[in-house]
């Protein structure tokens, strides 16, 4: 059974159709890159999987681990192992990262019928995962994303991903706004978390990220549909020929 199966997904916002029949199958352990020009539905696809409710799904279905995803609320999807790394992480003044993470972990545990995580275990986990993305210890006591640089925000996304240990991670334009050093750290973090049990969807419009995180498949999302799927070399071809090339294919 595949981990995620998207069938003929149509979604619109304010009556405007953005996704026009997306089909995508993801198996455990795979990394999929979804590429395409801006404004063609990449972020919408990520938001619909995560459950953002300002999108209206008009057709199609998403089956995740045998469950109809549309039956689950945003937080239930997260507790079921879906993680969305935001393109623009949100600042939450007054909520410290450690408080935020502890609440998230405990609520996910509650969903699974587990007791709250013991404090010392949580502290240990924080220390361990901070190292993966070289997150400054001082940042962990600050409010979530408040006053963080672009790079720090993205590192914080990967840090959260490491803490929550998701089954399916969707990283929406994780490379945008990153300098080359931050990109390397973020990519190393993602690679360190790769396993046979979990899968990743990388949403990007540059090939650059894929030098560091090598995907198993590359998909091109164009005008609301996946128009092309290929091996990692497809990304290079796109880089060389540009998205314009797709129009003539």
């Amino acid at each position: 059974m595949s981990l995620l199966e998207i069938r003929n997904l149509h979604a619109s916002i304010n009556g405007k159709e953005i996704l026009k029949g997306v089909d995508l199958t993801i198996n455990k352990g795979e990394v999929h890159a979804v590429m395409g020009p801006n404004g063609n539905g990449k972020s919408t696809l990520a938001s619909v999987i995560a459950g953002k409710d300002n999108f209206e799904v008009t057709q199609g279905e998403i089956i995740y681990q045998g469950k109809n995803l549309f039956d689950l609320s945003i937080d239930q999807r997260a507790a079921e192992g879906i993680f969305l790394g935001f393109q623009y992480p949100v600042e939450i003044p007054g909520v410290s990262i450690s408080n935020f993470m502890k609440t998230a972990i405990n609520e996910q545990r509650k969903y699974k019928g587990l007791d709250p995580i013991p404090t010392f275990e949580f502290m240990k986990l924080m220390e361990e995962k901070k190292k993966i993305v070289e997150l400054d210890s001082k940042l962990a006591n600050r409010s979530v994303n408040e006053g963080f640089s672009g790079g720090e925000k993205k590192k914080n996304e990967i840090f959260q991903m490491a803490m929550l240990n998701p089954t399916l991670s969707i990283l929406d334009e994780t490379d945008s706004g990153l300098d080359i050093d931050a990109l390397r750290i973020v990519a190393a973090g993602v690679n360190a978390l790769r396993s046979k049990e979990n899968s990743t969807i990388l949403i990007t419009h540059y090939q650059r990220l894929l030098d560091y995180i090598v995907p198993d498949f590359v998909h091109v999302l164009y005008e609301g549909k996946i128009v092309k799927t290929g091996p990692k070399e497809l990304a290079l071809e796109l880089e060389e020929k540009g998205y314009e090339w797709l129009k003539y294919e």
Binding site: D75, A78, F86, I92, V95, F100, M101, E107
Partner: peptide, 20 residues
């Protein structure tokens, strides 16, 4: 949305925001 996407329930997310 950000908080809920981490598994925090709507009620708890509201509480955290109000408390903050």
């Amino acid at each position: 949305f950000y908080m809920r996407s981490r598994g925090i329930t709507e009620r708890s997310a509201k509480m955290l925001l109000m408390y903050a």
